[in-house]
Design a protein around this nucleic acid. Structure first.
Length: 398
DNA sequence: TGCAATGATTCTTT
DNA sequence: AAAGAATCATTGCA
């Protein structure tokens, strides 16, 4: 990585020595220079003399120049920088700065490292991964999300259309996400390089330790990653909106095909005494109708309730299906009853008989049987039908 | 456009 | 967990 690059002192002053050997923590920059001029305040003739006063004035000048360097034009600054780098007092100043820094422990401040990963970011990452936005291309994520969304409620026949629409929108989000992410990463890398160059440049005039550079890089990365977090967050929001729209779309129901309704009705009326298909039966019905098991369950749930609420309304339908099944039974001679109607009801009857008997009495008389007596009592108990006038069909006469 | 039919959902009950 | 019950939301028809 960038922060591991060694920064070499090859500036215009490289021929002039600045002793850094006494500061092992400092950057290796200029470390080739002998430590001979290391002591600015030692007895090397810098104090107590005219020379010493002069030097102090020099240092003041240098500092002044450093302070004002940013106010100048580029060319001016470059020239001034060069002059400063070549200044005879520069090594001394550098040493002073090194010592001050070491004494104040400046380089060690704010070095709390390796904070634990942000749980929110982890959550976002996980979600993007699960949704198939992040992670490997065309992963099972999107498909898994779709199937999870559809598994509970079942899919309408044209759900594949919605499916592809969903996938297309998701891949759009994915593309945008990756483009933006790449942009941010590129910007981050560029900015990091820029800052490192600056620090490299500055390390000629002031001590900059590798640790400091690392820290600076870490700070930059943190800043950029917070921008990335925002990107991830908005991407997650987009996915959630897309998903909720897709789930809402499931509510856009389609009526089952005529054939499917027929199959379901046939089963219902041929098991009227106990219209509770087993799991296997539901699966079989689902297969026959081209719908899901939960749709079969829904259908039977609705049917039972609606039948019970208004039996007279369903009378005609019941008769039609009774006839149908009866005809089917007679055609299949030799088979005493349909495989499905196993006489689960109070009446151990053949399929067709069950049908007729299962239909409630419509003449207002109490039937000669108790249909609900068999299992839970709830289905048939509440099944006392209203007596529709004009109905002369008496199906409990068997 | 209104309305009944109907598939789906949600909450409650068993 | 499955069924009942109420309700929602869409479809299809007059």
């Amino acid at each position: 990585m960038l922060q591991q690059q060694p920064i070499t002192g090859n500036g215009p002053n490289s021929g002039r020595g600045i002793g850094l050997n006494a500061h092992p923590g400092m950057h290796p920059l200029n470390s080739v220079h002998p430590p001979t001029q290391h002591r600015p305040d030692g007895d090397s003739g810098l104090e107590g003399t005219e020379n010493g006063h002069e030097n102090r004035r020099d240092i003041g000048d240098i500092l002044q120049q450093i302070m004002t360097i940013t106010d100048q034009s580029l060319d001016e600054a470059q020239a001034k920088k060069h002059a400063l780098n070549c200044h005879r007092m520069k090594p001394a100043l550098f040493s002073v700065l090194c010592e001050i820094k070491e004494k104040t422990g400046l380089s060690m401040r704010n070095t709390q490292e390796e904070e634990p990963p942000d749980p929110q970011l982890v959550r976002l990452d996980n979600m993007l991964l699960a949704e198939g936005v992040a992670g490997p291309e065309k992963g099972g994520g999107a498909a898994a999300a779709v199937s999870a969304a559809t598994s509970s409620g079942g899919m309408s026949p044209d759900s594949s259309l919605e499916h592809s629409d969903y996938k297309q929108k998701l891949s759009q989000i994915r593309t945008i996400y990756h483009t933006e992410l790449e942009k941010y990463e590129q910007a981050c890398a560029e900015f990091t390089t820029h800052v490192m160059n600056l620090l490299r440049e500055q390390s000629r005039t002031r001590p900059v330790s590798p640790r400091e550079i690392e820290r600076m890089v870490a700070i930059i990365h943190r800043k950029f990653s917070s921008i990335q977090t925002q990107l991830k967050q908005s991407t997650c929001e987009a996915v959630m909106i897309l998903r909720s729209r897709f789930l809402d779309a499931r509510r856009k129901r389609r009526n089952f095909s005529k054939q499917a309704t027929e199959v379901l009705n046939e089963y219902f009326y041929s098991h009227l005494s106990n219209p509770y298909p087993s799991e296997e039966a539901k699966e079989e019905l689902a297969k026959q109708c081209g719908i899901t098991v939960s749709q079969v369950s829904n259908w039977f749930g609705n049917k039972r309730i609606r039948y019970k609420k208004n039996i007279s309304k369903f009378q005609e339908e019941a008769n039609i299906y009774a006839m149908k099944t009866a005809m089917g039974a007679t055609q299949r001679e030799g088979s005493p009853h349909t495989p499905n109607s196993t006489g689960s009801g109070f009446f151990s009857l053949s399929g067709s008989a069950d049908l007729f008997l299962g239909a409630p009495p419509v003449n207002g008389e109490q039937p000669g049987y108790h249909m609900g007596a068999q299992t839970n009592g709830t289905w048939q108990e509440q099944n006392t039908p209203p007596s529709p006038p004009g109905s002369e069909h008496s199906d409990n006469s068997d």
